[in-house]
């Protein structure tokens, strides 16, 4: 059977803006991925536990409350602690461009700002997700 990309879509922290996360979850599923939507108020520990148990290939993080510099690197760090080095971590939301560099250096492979065409995100994931 064809392998499916499994992706966790998570909202770290207390931010409740999930329009983008839900929209992308739907679009990822339409693109044939298996999408685990974790809902709001996720700690990095919860997100990483989900990624581990679900054997996720990709973790997509969404934040609009300005806490990305704390949460995104923390998720990458916890994944590494667990030896999950090949999980692709991407992020989106309201993230100042000046933070992109820092986030990418911390291991977030791509940041998608407001207005990014959804297919650009889908294609990035499809071409960068690991094989299992």
């Amino acid at each position: 059977m064809a392998k499916k990309i499994k992706i966790i879509v998570a909202k770290p922290g207390l931010d409740g803006h999930d329009r983008g996360a839900k929209l992308l979850a739907r679009i990822f599923a339409e693109e044939g991925m298996e999408v685990v939507y974790t809902g709001l108020r996720q700690t990095p520990e919860m997100i990483v536990a989900a990624a581990e148990q679900e054997d996720a290939d990709v973790v997509g993080l969404s934040s609009l409350s300005g806490v990305h510099n704390y949460f995104f690197p923390r998720v990458v760090e916890l994944l590494k602690d667990k030896g999950l080095n090949d999980v692709l971590v991407v992020g989106g939301g309201i993230i100042p461009v000046e933070d992109y560099d820092f986030l990418q250096k911390s291991g977030v492979k791509a940041i998608f700002g407001p207005g990014t065409p959804t297919m650009e995100i889908v294609n990035f994931i499809k071409s960068n997700a690991r094989a299992r």
Binding site: L14, R41, T43, S65, V67, Y70
Partner: peptide, 22 residues
């Protein structure tokens, strides 16, 4: 701030990174 809106104090674990943010 979001912790106040969600009924948490600023020193709650879920408030990490959120204090004084929005």
């Amino acid at each position: 701030q979001l912790p106040t809106q969600a009924g948490y104090d600023s020193d709650h674990p879920l408030s990490m990174g959120e204090v004084g943010k929005v």
